[in-house]
Computed example of a mutant assay.
Amino acid sequence: MQQKTSRRTNRERSDTTRAAILDAARGLFVSRGYADTSTPDIVSAAGLTRGALYHHFEDKKALFRAVAEREATAVAAAIEQATAKGLTAREALKVGARAYFDAMNHPGRIRLLLLDGPAVLGKHEMMAIDAANAQRTLEEGIAEAMAPAAVAPEKLAALASLLSAAFDRAALDIADGASTELYAETIGTLIDRMVST
């Protein structure tokens, strides 16, 4: 029995260390950028050793990927929470778009996911992170909203990719001071026209 308690404590300690590294790295990646953040800076900010960092992450790029994954998961969770009510598929797409804009407004997310993410990890790796989070549900939402018309999988993927790109561009413009309401309304019009075809 005591051995199980000890293992749980080790696991909790490991999770706490990992979270501290991720939190410190996120703060530095947001304030300084990936290129100007060193692993010694990260461990110093986390109050840990380099050994602790390398126990959890292969290198700085792997650490950045983990930060990006955590941010993408948080965005997807915000969208899912906002669309969990009894909405029609079309309404869910519109509410989800607004939830995306709000979630991306969280300090640092634009830089991590839309600016530094593709530069550090590459387009394909960022697409894989997106696919593991919001992309699948976006495709499902589009398919449901376009029903009863059957949409070929490759066309569905293309529609989701284009709509996702529109969401990203809107989030960038909103971060630069554009009206969230205007973009939410405009994306809503785009969704209406897309699903009525």
Rank of each mutant, 00 (worst) to 15 (best):
M104S: 02
Q81Y: 06
L138Y: 07
V95N: 12
T5E: 15
P153Q: 06
I21T: 02
L156M: 09
Q135F: 11
G27P: 04
R169H: 09
E154R: 14
I187M: 12
A131Y: 06
T39E: 01
S179A: 02
D23V: 03
A143P: 05
G122K: 04
L63C: 09
V151F: 14
I142G: 00
H55P: 00
T189P: 00
K123A: 12
R136Y: 09
A45R: 13
K85G: 05
G96P: 08
I187K: 03
D173L: 08
R11A: 12
A89Q: 03
L190F: 07
F64N: 01
A184F: 00
A166V: 02
S38E: 11
E181H: 02
T197W: 15
H55F: 14
A89T: 02
P153A: 05
L156I: 07
A175R: 00
E91K: 07
V120R: 14
K60D: 01
A143N: 07
L115R: 13
A178L: 08
L114Q: 14
D176L: 11
A72Q: 03
E139L: 02
A46R: 06
E80W: 09
G86R: 11
D102H: 12
D102P: 01
M126E: 03
D15T: 06
L63W: 04
G177S: 07
L138N: 07
T186I: 02
M1Y: 06
F64Y: 10
T186G: 09
Y100W: 13
K61S: 08
D59T: 08
I21C: 07
A72R: 00
V151P: 14
L112Q: 00
S6I: 08
E125M: 09
A175S: 04
R70S: 13
A66C: 02
A97C: 13
Q2G: 14
A157F: 00
M127C: 07
A170H: 04
A147C: 06
E69W: 03
E12L: 10
Q135P: 05
A143V: 03
I191Q: 00
D192P: 09
S196W: 02
T88H: 13
F167N: 13
N10Y: 08
G51E: 12
L162P: 04
K123N: 10
P153D: 15
N133T: 12
L121C: 14
F29R: 00
R136I: 05
I174R: 14
K61P: 00
A147F: 04
F101N: 01
